[in-house]
Every structure is written in structure tokens, then in C-alpha cells.
Amino acid sequence: MGQIVKKATAGTMESSDAYIEISPGEEGEGLDIQLESVVYHQFGQAIRKVAEEVLQEFSIERAKVRIVDRGALDCVLRARMETAIRRGIEEE
């Protein structure tokens, strides 16, 4: 299982981008994903699914994730999630 060991961020608040904050989850809790999006009603579920898929690729089962989506395409969201995860699992 991958483990987020520190708070990390990736991305920006600019249009077509996404800003991600990831931090270690509480003991005994799973994934806690908070999503803000300009297209929340249309694509909220799909965005959440992409985020979960990337977390799964890194076998992250416990983390707090905050996503501020500014209309990012899937490939951008995936890139920002991956960057935040890689930064969060790196030891100091």
C-alpha cells in the first residue's frame, strides 16, 4: 500500500487546470475527497472517479484530498493528481 506521509500540493487555480491538496488520512479512515468544480453538477462524479483511479494506481487507501477543478481535462486532472501523490509519498 502506498502511503501519503506529508501534505503536498500540485496544479494551479488557472482555467483548464486543477489544484490538488493531498495529506495523510486519519488512522482507520479511507479516502476523503473534497471536490470544488466549476462544472460540479455535470462532471462531479466523473472527476471524483478519475481522482479515485489515480489514487488506486498508487495503492493509496488512506488520504485526504482536496480538488479545486477549473475545467481541467481528464489528462490534466490525472497529471495533477499524480504529481501531488508523488510529492506526498516522498520522504523528506
Partner: peptide
């Protein structure tokens, strides 16, 4: 971040 974004 840029490397991953360009790759995607």
C-alpha cells in the same frame, strides 16, 4: 509537474 503534464 510539467514532465507529467506533458507526458499525459
Amino acid at each position: 509537474a510539467a514532465r507529467i503534464l506533458v507526458r499525459n
